[in-house]
Design a protein around this nucleic acid. Structure first.
Lengths: 221, 221
DNA sequence: CGCGGGCGTAGGGAACGCGTCAAGACCGGC
DNA sequence: GCCGGTCTTGACGCGTTCCCTACGCCCGCG
């Protein structure tokens, strides 16, 4: 889960951000002033920082410098000052984005998503453990010399994308084979068996690729 | 040198951007409409795109989608519309930043620098070993007197950039030959065979330039 | 106890994708 | 204008993957 550190002293903004980001599976932490922010970031480095420049103790640019001294964590700046000189200064100091107040909360969330997407997709791959093996969705690799065919990947990706969640047979069939194959449930049995043979330690008694009779399948981490 | 593709039809803005970016060692290319932009980006992929949403031919969001279909190049959007709905839409489509007109040229340059800074510092290795040979990406040389043609270099670079990661044939084709060649998979077979003949010890049984049937190719160090 | 639905497994035919060889089209320099 | 290298096409054999049919098993139900 992506951890966002919000540095601001307005309870109203904090509340709105917390709600909106929680809904999108972000973890929100809060700091009310610059010193707290720097200490907190040092103690538990966040994955992204939302920084209000109008802090009670230190100038916002100094907070940017304080962070950039040791980390390249993405920083999104909030500020009441719309002058381009202020923007240039903050961006040159190392900020990734600059949003002027007042702003729409939806826009800020979209910008947070844009920045964190850029970072995570550029960075290391998303890996998931399935029993003995490790599956790398981005690189399309499985540890232990296991090889998966395109159809097997397609199926596995849908299941892994929502760990623990039940995926109906109809959804699996329509997304992998197309809407006209909605009733061909034996395709699922076929390929689920192959996935289990390749990934599960004991294919006859699967522990991660589970069947929910009459309903669908579920990936259990 | 970082190459920036500016998609806009205002000569005044283009001129200002060209001067300011040239001064900071950026290479500036220009496209006046969406189709030109997509074609140009396919022919010579830029390192960053500045995209005006108010284009004469296609909606700006479609240009974003057209690019995001095969590349993660950073996109900075310019727009006269300041509504948060427009911003969210563009950012969700895959844009990295959104600047509303009128804006200060200094601010745009600062944002370009902020975005490209994150990309270039993402990391890069110049020399890579491929079996018996050593490939120097920067110097465009291969040890052992091996010579590669431009197309071969282009292909090899994409594969080497993400070692161990699978690259889809769609991405390879659009990046090397252009979006219209998306289905010409036998170009890939042709040139992958040539690369293997030149680099692999046993071209019939490649150990570094691997095929993933139905999906793409992978460089294994 | 017999029955049927849902599930897991096995095997074979067909189609697709891949590698390879070969030849024609294009473009540069000598 | 000739010639070498490079880029585009085309055709063929082979292996893998996919699709489909068939069968055995477990469990709930009548």
């Amino acid at each position: 889960m992506t951890r966002v550190l919000v540095v601001d002293d307005e309870p109203q903004l904090l509340r709105a951000l917390r709600i909106n980001l929680r809904a999108r599976d972000y973890d929100v932490e809060v700091a009310a002033d610059g010193t707290t922010a720097l200490r907190q970031a040092g103690a538990a480095p966040p994955d992204l920082v939302v920084l209000d420049l109008g802090l009670p103790d230190i100038p916002g640019v100094d907070v940017i410098h304080g962070l950039r001294g040791w980390t390249r964590v993405p920083i999104i700046v909030l500020s009441g000052r719309a002058g381009s000189q202020d923007k240039v200064e903050a961006l040159e100091a190392g900020a990734d984005d600059y949003v002027t107040k007042p702003f729409d909360i939806e826009e800020l969330v979209a910008r947070i998503r844009a920045v964190s997407r850029r970072v995570t997709t550029a960075g290391e791959a998303s890996r998931v453990d399935v029993g003995e093996h490790t599956v790398d969705l981005a690189g399309k690799t499985v540890s232990g010399g296991v090889h998966l065919t395109p159809t097997e990947w397609h199926l596995l990706e849908i299941l892994i994308r929502d760990p623990g969640k039940l995926i109906s047979q109809q959804q699996l069939l329509t997304t992998v084979w197309g809407p006209s194959y909605r009733r061909e449930t034996h395709y699922l049995r076929q390929y689920m068996a192959q996935l289990r043979r390749k990934l599960e330690a004991d294919p006859a008694h699967p522990r991660h690729l589970l069947t929910e009779p009459g309903m669908g399948y579920r990936f259990q981490p």
